[in-house]
């Protein structure tokens, strides 16, 4: 048998996703990765929990989209975090709804995310719980250990913390570059490059 070069810790796809071999992705066919996304070890993504009701908006033909989890570009899912689509009773039927995540979203270690929507440039700390059907807009920072209650809507440029989470401040002017995850993306993988100082 021809042996390939030693297997790295990550699987790197053509679109630049880096998925750890020890990540648990359930229902991979329903998980959309936008590219350049890092998924570290022991991350769990539940793609098997798909919408069980046909979506009302896509009435005009075409196959129904079964996406359970959609992730944008340059997202970073830290070790041990869990992404799970939110579910609820809708018109008397229980259904899961897709979890949509924008670009440059950082998810900290051991965080559980059951949001309906997460915008772009969002930083979620470690040990955070994002409740079901929460909506997080762009440029939001959620500090470590927060518990975002179900159905909470977090406006743009907020800093959020506490149990239950409350808006405690605003992202300062000029602090937007801190949400860029391009350098972080380069610093992991099979050939990690040191972060430029």
């Amino acid at each position: 048998m021809s042996r390939k070069p030693p297997r790295g810790e990550y699987i790197e796809t053509d679109t630049g996703n880096k998925v750890a071999r020890k990540a648990t992705l359930v229902g991979t066919q329903n998980i959309m990765l936008g590219g350049k996304t890092v998924i570290q070890q022991e991350v769990m993504i539940r793609g098997d929990l798909i919408r069980s009701l046909p979506s009302s908006s896509s009435s005009g033909g075409g196959p129904p989209s079964n996406t359970a989890v959609a992730i944008g570009r340059y997202c970073f899912l830290s070790r041990g975090c869990c992404l799970k689509p939110p579910g609820r009773l809708y018109k008397g039927v229980f259904t899961y709804m897709p979890l949509r995540m924008g670009d440059h979203v950082f998810v900290g270690q051991n965080t559980v995310v059951q949001a309906a929507q997460i915008g772009s440039h969002v930083n979620i700390g470690a040990q955070v719980v994002v409740g079901e059907f929460a909506i997080i807009k762009d440029f939001v920072r959620i500090l470590d250990g927060s518990v975002v209650p179900a159905n909470m809507v977090i406006p743009s440029f907020s800093i959020v913390a506490g149990q239950p989470a409350k808006v405690i401040g605003e992202v300062p002017e000029g602090g937007h570059d801190a949400f860029e995850l391009r350098d972080l993306y380069k610093s992991v993988g099979n050939n990690p490059q040191p972060a430029p100082s």
Partner: peptide, 14 residues
Amino acid sequence: KGQARQIEVLRRMI
């Protein structure tokens, strides 16, 4: 009741 409905759906998915 909600729990029963949820289990009905999970039964098909898992």
